[in-house]
Write a protein that binds this DNA or RNA. Structure first.
Lengths: 345, 345
DNA sequence: TCCAGCATTGCACCCGCGTGCAAATCTGTC
DNA sequence: GACAGATTTGCACGCGGGTGCAATGCTGGA
């Protein structure tokens, strides 16, 4: 049992299938088959193998397994600003569902400088991830293309890059934005405004466009303001700036809850306004804080759990080689709270 | 160049080093050496290899590389409640630093049922992660032990399990908790209380113990309340319950900012109390929301960036085989805002 | 008892790549 | 031009494990 292979002290820490085979008195193939689903092993040898494996603390080496089979069971999650409530919620939902499905999540944070992003994205390829899920950020289209040509399953959430190939999921941004306008109007707001960041994410742009279009259809115009990244601080800065205008907004649609929270805080702490009496606010995402009583924000919910579930199920439906699948749409439900006057319709 | 291997359509999607070698007119070893740091290749062949590699879209297969070398460059991050601001902040800081260091993060979410957690933890071993970083959650000690005996570098944050071996980092919970008590006392609070969840995390327990001890040393006692998980909702429920007591607390230390936010919201929206006039609140963690003007919460900051940086640097300092290293302590700095009467000392 | 039919098993090869070793090439000096 | 030494290169092996193929063992029916 203890064979000192040579002079070099053999520090190899992990147990290999060969060692298990020797201990169980079977061939290495038998060990391999024991841990391969659907392989042919008798109950007797399987039992002996498993006992030996447990005694030795054996764990199949997925690196080696992934080398042979064409699947590594690694799914890479690409996102920016993981510390944001919305992104964090997505990562949470996805990681927990992924591991329930026996897969493993590799998280790529694209918040850093572009160079590091490319490097990270490349890791996805280097580790032969089965799929890449893009949740946010602006990974260069060329890299996405590389993922595709290497046979990866690419899934994109709420972004409509022109590259054909990826599966796409999106929430009904446009319909929601129209609805937001109508509600603000119905609440009697006279100076309606749109609050957005300077980041041109697909979904944010869609919300803005649809909101402005809805106003135009209603024969009105709305104030539009952009500032900085999509954060609480930006919302706050926008509030400070916009609420000081002569034509002070009394109804705003913030393209993100985080912006809305900042805007509300500016309204209350810097202008002493009361919500919804002096100012109605509608957000988007329904992050946890929107439900906190300090905000009680009426907002559109992104059905994170459903989205995550669908992404997981997509992983089992490899995309047909040549064709492009239609985007999958999820309705963004309006969660009616107290930041808008009046009651639900 | 185009040799159809046989009848089977060769759908293999990734480019291998062999293909690059053929195209560059060199041996496969040359390709390997080109992408291996410190290997001996002439500038000329390196150039030809790199050109061929780019033309073909070659990416080194890290699964295969990890098979040979004893490092996979994978670091697994184990955490619960990733959607929590504090955890999300940690994951954010760690993933971005990891990829800057050329490593890759595998995220294991231990929020699900124990069974799935064990499965996930096992993945860490199956993918031969170089290190496992435990940020939260209660992974079974036996699995941690398995990680250790297989030569993994285990790093634990803010938890003092009895298992020897892992590197440990922690913030100065006890000193902070004492400080919290003294500040509440200095602010003139007469009915001081401790608000905690029912989850017995090491750091939460330490904060509670030290707070109670500080009160005892001062010849007083404090009310102590526990409820549910460590969430906003629990804080809110505790607020609703405790503030209705005949001896209503006028100064509370919440072991977590999330609890504090919930408690504050209960105080204001359900009891009409004003903070800090009627009630002083101190939290812990300094999550982003603590700085929002709706809360303006005086709290202890966990130096997330420093912690993350230290964890990354630890990865390059493999632990000495037999010995146990001393825990690394980080001071939790008090961030003075407006939820406590008076000014900084 | 004999033999067809099926479940198991072991052998050998391969996945993609790093690396020791020896052969081949290059460099510089006399 | 010759030759010792330094690079560079290719060959071959092995990392750990899946799997086709043929050999083996087992079952059951005639």
């Amino acid at each position: 049992m203890s064979e000192t292979a040579g002079g070099k002290h053999r520090q190899r820490s992990y147990v290999s299938a060969l060692q298990v085979a020797e201990r169980a008195g079977v061939s290495r193939s038998a060990v391999s088959r024991t841990f391969t689903e659907g392989a042919s092993v008798s109950a007797a040898t399987r039992k002996r193998v498993i006992e030996a494996a447990e005694a030795l603390g054996y764990h199949v080496n997925h690196l080696a397994r992934g080398l042979i089979q064409d699947r590594s069971n690694i799914v890479s999650l690409v996102a920016t600003d993981l510390n944001t409530p919305y992104q964090a919620g997505l990562i949470h939902a996805l990681t927990s569902r992924l591991q329930r499905a026996g897969k493993v999540a590799m998280v790529i944070n694209t918040s850093g400088q572009t160079q590091s992003v490319e490097k990270a994205l490349r890791q996805t390829l280097e580790y032969r991830a089965d799929a890449t899920v893009v949740l946010s950020g602006q990974p260069p289209g060329s890299l996405i293309q590389t993922c595709l040509t290497n046979g990866q399953h690419v899934i994109m959430l709420n972004r409509d890059d022109a590259v054909p190939g990826p599966d796409r999921l999106m929430v009904t941004n446009r319909a929601a934005a129209r609805e937001a306008f109508l509600h603000l109007q119905a609440a009697g707001c006279r100076q309606i405004a749109l609050v957005a960041s300077e980041v041109g994410t697909a979904s944010v742009v869609a919300r803005e466009e649809a909101f402005v279009a809805a106003a135009a259809e209603a024969g009105t115009t709305v104030q539009v303001a952009h500032f900085g990244p999509t954060t609480y601080a930006s919302g706050r800065a926008l509030g400070r700036q916009m609420l000081a205008r002569p034509q002070r907004p009394d109804g705003v649609f913030c393209v993100t809850d985080l912006l809305a929270c900042g805007f509300m805080d500016a309204a209350r702490s810097e202008f002493g306004l009361s919500i919804p009496d002096d100012l109605c606010v509608i957000g988007f995402d329904d992050i946890e804080q929107a439900g906190w009583s300090s905000f009680d924000l009426t907002t559109f919910r992104q059905p994170i759990d459903q989205i995550a579930a669908r992404i997981i199920s997509l992983l089992d439906e490899p995309p047909p080689p040549g064709t492009q699948r239609e985007p999958i749409a999820f309705p963004a439900e309006l969660i009616w709270r107290r930041s808008v006057r009046g009651t639900r319709r």
